[in-house]
Design a protein around this nucleic acid. Structure first.
Length: 616
DNA sequence: TTAGGGTTAG
């Protein structure tokens, strides 16, 4: 086969090809040229071409189309296709290809099963795994370490631990992959205790994947402190963290708002000259954004070479929860100009940005482009954003009409968004109506009762408010206690509402009295309307208003940092209205920037104003 | 050939 010159030209064409909207068009042209020049007979060129197509979602169907054109594909090509789809968004294609392969003249080989089982584990498909298990035995691969480990993995990730252990126990000497597969199963299902026990027990030397499996398990279980602890332990071991380990550790930092540790990891990446691939870029951007550093997030974004849709989305999301609606929209337009197709998550991010900033018309137009220009069907999440957008802006009737007209059945999140809007805009009648619906839908969600009781209280219906509170107690649902944290010199100080456990609580309470006096001199009167304060006596009321966790944390920040230093607070719930007002005043009186990360977004306080424009 | 990774609403 004379392939030399045309083969090189072909490889050059592939390497120049830009991923994005025009990709399939360009691949078609290359394919046509291959056909003409006879390259389609060259196994090397075919492999290159198909692998390239399979590496991206938008062109994988084109690979299938080309593959179907072959008269008698050999085992290698079948395997290539099965592997290509196993990690795509359509792993069931791998199984379909396998069944077709069985009917063809090409025999499978030792490589076929691991690829196929990868597809099964991505599909979480138990029945298919069992079927393939039968084939593995039947065709004599029952002792092949790759096939067995892949089976352990598939059983473990589908939660069939008995079957996984059965295979695991039969292996004379399980290798590190066998252990990692088993541990991954427990980690994925949230059984971190069992995963840790196995992890500690494994006699095999742990590798980076073993560590990362545990760290990512903790992150996915929301146990971010444990994740970082294990990451530190990993650094003291003799295994170097790689880009995947670091990406997971960064996710933990993002969730915890642990800026110092996140920065440290970033400098580690730079020092070790670890390549910032698109995944690492995503988590770095997310970490900086969630730690309040949008400039840093933007710097990472600018420095990364390849920017797939996820990287743009990470940045746009960052702008969203910082309330930078215009910037979010501008990046959204930029990415489209670059030929990058937004995905469902991008749209959620842009709509959130519009909703947090009150960009009603822009949000509506983005919502309608979704289906019209990108053929993406709005999901319940997108509808939730729309209800939020309209509701926050006070367009309650329009929000209600939107819910009635939307093609999906409204869930608790949708009604919750409207309820919140009723509370903001003091629409008691509609609020009560929706509150009833929500409590029936979601009887064990504490927040529903709290909203409902607050709406009753707003209408001065004290009996009803008390009744809702009683109902909540009766159902045994507890309100999540408010908790704020402040990080000072690497130590995180945690405050709960009314908490007296802090070592310096007396000093903090004294300082708060001074702060409060200054606030009152500046016209501050506690705002009570959105809490149930009318139901309690004076002393309790005092305790509730003046011991909110964010007030304690800010007071501590004022005590412990030099004048002029920015105070950074994190809160697990939404910041309360009274605390928001107090924080604005403190930023002015004490000339401090205060950055507060609440459950859903950031508030940057400066000189008596908040970046959210009181729109939250 | 087998094991670990990404952005979202409330």
């Amino acid at each position: 086969m004379a392939v030399t010159s045309s083969s090189f030209a072909f490889e050059h064409n592939l390497s120049c090809l830009q991923k994005g909207s025009k990709e399939v068009e360009q691949l078609k042209q290359i394919h046509a040229r291959m056909l003409k020049s006879g390259l389609l007979q060259d196994p090397y060129a075919i492999t290159k071409f198909l692998s390239f197509c399979l590496s991206s979602t938008s062109s994988s169907y084109y690979a299938l189309h080309v593959f179907q054109g072959f008269d008698r594909p050999d085992t290698f090509l079948w395997n290539l296709m099965i592997r290509g789809f196993s990690c795509s968004d359509q792993p069931q294609r791998s199984l379909l290809l396998y069944y077709r392969m069985l009917c063809s003249s090409a025999p499978h080989n030792a490589y076929t099963f691991p690829f196929l089982l990868k597809a099964c584990s991505n599909l979480s498909a138990l029945e298919e795994t069992k079927q393939i298990h039968a084939h593995v035995t039947k065709f004599g691969y029952g002792d092949d370490v790759y096939a067995v480990n892949s089976l352990i993995n598939s059983y473990a990730v589908t939660g069939n631990f008995n079957l996984a252990h059965l295979l695991f126990d039969r292996i004379k000497e399980p290798d590190v992959v066998s252990w990692n597969s088993l541990i991954k199963g427990y980690a994925k299902s949230g059984n971190m205790d069992i995963a840790l026990t196995l992890f500690r027990r494994m006699p095999e030397k742990k590798n980076a994947i073993s560590w990362t499996t545990m760290i990512s398990g903790y992150v996915q279980a929301g146990m971010n402190k444990e994740a970082l602890q294990l990451f530190h332990e990993m650094q003291n071991s003799d295994v170097e963290p790689d880009n995947v380990s670091l990406a997971n550790a960064l996710s933990a930092c993002a969730q915890l708002g642990a800026l110092q540790q996140g920065k440290w990891i970033h400098s580690y990446v730079n020092q070790r000259r670890i390549i910032i691939d698109s995944v690492l870029a995503c988590v770095l951007i997310d970490m900086y954004a969630k730690c309040g550093e949008m400039e840093e997030a933007l710097a990472v974004f600018k420095n990364v070479n390849r920017k797939p849709v996820q990287v743009w989305t990470a940045l746009i999301s960052g702008y969203a929860y910082h309330g930078h609606g215009r910037e979010a929209i501008s990046k959204f337009l930029d990415m489209q100009r670059m030929g990058i197709k937004p995905n469902a998550i991008t749209f959620t991010a842009v709509l959130t940005a519009c909703s947090y900033t009150g960009l009603v018309e822009e949000g509506k137009s983005v919502f309608y482009t979704m289906e019209r220009e990108y053929n993406l069907k709005p999901t319940i999440e997108h509808c939730g954003c729309m209800v939020d957008l309209l509701g926050r802006a006070g367009l309650l009737d329009e929000a209600k009409r939107f819910i009635q007209k939307m093609p999906l059945k409204p869930n608790a999140v949708i009604w919750g968004a409207l309820l919140k809007a009723c509370q903001i805009h003091k629409n008691i009648e509609l609020g009560e109506e929706i509150g009833e619906v929500l409590i029936t839908m979601d009887p064990y969600h504490g927040g529903r009762y709290v909203h409902m009781a607050n709406i009753h209280a707003m209408g001065k219906k004290w009996d009803k408010a008390a009744e809702t509170r009683r109902l909540m107690k009766e159902q045994g649902v507890a309100k999540v206690p408010g908790c704020s944290t402040i990080s000072l010199e690497g130590t995180t100080h945690e405050f709960l509402a009314g908490d007296r456990s802090h070592a310096e609580i007396e000093e903090i309470r004294n300082k708060w009295r001074t702060v409060r006096r200054k606030l009152e001199e500046n016209g501050y009167v506690p705002e009570l309307e959105d809490t149930l304060l009318h139901l309690v006596d004076d002393e309790e009321r005092e305790a509730i208003v003046h011991q909110h966790s964010e007030k304690l944390a800010i007071t501590y920040g004022l005590m412990k940092t030099k004048p002029g230093t920015t105070i950074r607070i994190m809160k697990n719930l939404r910041v309360c209205k009274d605390c928001h007002r107090v924080t604005k005043l403190i930023s002015k009186i004490y000339k401090r920037d205060i950055v507060m990360r609440d459950r859903t977004r950031f508030h940057h306080f400066r000189d008596g104003k908040c970046s959210c424009g009181d729109y939250w």
